[in-house]
């Protein structure tokens, strides 16, 4: 059974229909990574609540750095993704379909933004912000890991709607 979608018969019909994408990412990889991230974010929330502000801030810095890695290098090259490829994927059946890495990469950027706000506010002395940012990022990562919810996809559409992204007509039809 071919893994890659072949649609030779029906080119996308809409004028601005997405160009053919080359999905190359096992969608279970980012979900696996989101699970690890969610657990660590929960630890940040716990540390923040118990008053271990320094530890909470340090762990959030590490998680923000990991989000930055995913956002810059791409979701396929995230450290958790490498862990998944090395140890988890060999034990699983081949994926039903492959995924375009752009949405999970965008989601990593969203995670970076949220955790970075927490880190900056934590650094200027607003300790509760660390826990709040971690809780917000946890909800997104948890929904991604458990329910396959793509917050990046949702936010991307809302940003397009509000005119902040994708402004102007498609350059190439």
């Amino acid at each position: 059974m071919p893994l890659l979608p072949a649609e030779p018969g029906t080119p996308a019909a809409g004028a601005g229909a997405p160009r053919p994408r080359r999905p190359d990412l096992d969608p279970r990889g980012p979900r696996f990574g989101a699970g690890i991230t969610a657990v660590l974010l929960l630890v940040v929330v716990f540390l923040s609540l118990t008053g271990a502000s320094a530890a909470a801030l340090s762990l959030l810095v590490v998680l923000a750095a990991l989000f930055a890695w995913g956002a810059i290098a791409g979701a396929g090259r995230h450290p958790w993704g490498l862990l998944f490829k090395r140890f988890v994927r060999p034990r699983l059946a081949p994926p039903g379909e492959l995924e375009n890495p752009a949405p999970p990469t965008f989601a990593q950027g969203v995670g970076l933004l949220v955790t970075l706000v927490g880190v900056v506010l934590g650094l200027v002395g607003l300790a509760p912000a660390v826990g709040i940012a971690a809780a917000a990022a946890f909800v997104a990562a948890f929904l991604n890991a458990v329910f396959d919810y793509c917050l990046g996809c949702q936010l991307y559409l809302l940003l397009v709607r509000s005119g902040l992204l994708g402004r102007g007509p498609a350059s190439a039809g």
Binding site: T10, A12, A13, G14, G16, A17, P18, C153, Q154, L157, L158, V160, R161, S162, G163, L165, G166, R167, G168, P169, A170
Partner: peptide, 20 residues
């Protein structure tokens, strides 16, 4: 089947109230 990319057509996203 017609696929419409809203990336560059925010107007269509608003007109058809596409939220996801």
């Amino acid at each position: 089947h017609v696929e419409v990319d809203l990336t560059h057509r925010a107007d269509l996203a608003r007109r058809f109230q596409v939220l996801q």
